[in-house]
Design a protein around this nucleic acid. Structure first.
Lengths: 218, 218
DNA sequence: GTCTATATCCCGATAGAC
DNA sequence: GTCTATCGGGATATAGAC
């Protein structure tokens, strides 16, 4: 059968993409040569050009195969069991956990792509599509959540998703540079303020204390 | 006098730094060659190495001569004349104005530096110091402001500064990629929620309407 | 301190054998 | 489709004249 050939081709493509994802994430796209990607995938640079035509082609193919939906995924995974504030805390701690491999690399990779998009329209287009999808999904999740727990959000679902994503992104950046300036409970407070979870009564059913700093010592 | 020599040296140094700031900001640090910097400053690459030893040395000297305090400056500049919400709106519109040259470049440059810091401890150190100063200053400004206008902030001054900076940063990034997803009034709502400006009464003295989208059509 | 010239290296991409 | 070999270009950094 000709199947073996096709399989090898497909495997090569997959291995190249995986290698690129790895290397790009932790060394930066510009710092990684085509040869390095090929070698990490057990091939040579010729294979890269046969499959993707150029380094840029490789990057675009990679973006096309990705989920930007880290936030969306996290929102989807939130367990319904915990208290509302506890759920928000879980989202943040997963997002900001630098020990986890995928999450740890997420902010760096995301910023790298954003920066590239700021100077490369082709990348910007792909990123915009992905971003729109993720926001749509997050908006739905947040909408369901806020009405379920009786929160009074700062803005309509679409806008709220933008605000929450923005705050989480900014906090992740800040934490990466100066972890001690963004304790978990501060992040939680910020999110709570945006989604409008009530916090003013001493023992509200939200499971969050109004003033002091107590939960998730990480 | 030997003064002429010294002056020329100082001027060369200043011109090199200025040229580097310009080029780095709009093409990216890696994309700019030492030769390009020198040429833009009316010198040759030899001058760069005589003054800074390496490209990295040039970058560090540049960081050392910078103010990261864009946000701090903006907070300081807020006029006392307008309504509280109007003042917040002014901060955001100055920060997110992509037409202004300095502000337009700010997010890109800031992200570039952040990204570099994520992989280069030397840069990270410099950035941390700068960031700490800016946050301290912002915290003082915000503290004075919130008590002056009678807001009920989400967190203590230091924490509040972190939250506000994070939200503004995240929103600026989002706006750069997809401007239509972050209208001015949405940004304002988010900031208002964090600083705890009251918005629930129909015509409160804050100058902000509670529900609809009306101000600063940009 | 500054310039010119150059050493040295590495990258992206192509050509051609298999 | 994949490899080997190589071209052409551009980068950082150094050497030496002035």
């Amino acid at each position: 059968m000709a199947r073996t050939q096709q399989e090898r081709k497909a495997e090569t493509r997959a291995r190249l993409l995986a290698a690129a994802a790895d290397l790009f994430a932790d060394q930066g796209i510009d710092a990684v040569s085509v040869d390095a990607v090929a070698e990490a995938a057990g091939r040579t640079s010729g294979a890269v050009y046969a499959h993707f035509g150029s380094k840029q082609g490789l990057l675009l193919a990679l973006l096309d195969s990705w989920k930007d939906s880290v936030l969306a995924v996290l929102l989807a995974e939130v367990a319904v069991s915990d208290s509302p504030a506890g759920q928000l805390a879980a989202v943040w701690s997963n997002l900001s956990d630098t020990s986890d491999e995928a999450s740890g690399r997420w902010p760096v990779l995301e910023q790298e792509l954003w920066l590239r998009a700021a100077r490369d329209p082709e990348v910007a287009d792909v990123l915009r599509v992905r971003n729109a999808e993720a926001l749509r999904f997050s908006a739905r999740q947040l909408d369901g959540w806020t009405s379920a727990v009786g929160a009074r959000p700062t803005a309509a679902p679409d806008g709220l998703a933008v605000l929450v994503k923005a705050l989480l992104t900014g906090l992740a950046l800040q934490k990466r540079l100066t972890p001690e300036t963004v304790p978990d409970d501060l992040a939680l407070r910020g999110i709570v303020a945006l989604v409008g979870l009530p916090t003013d009564t001493a023992d509200s059913p939200t499971g969050m204390s109004p003033v002091s700093t107590d939960r998730t010592t990480d």
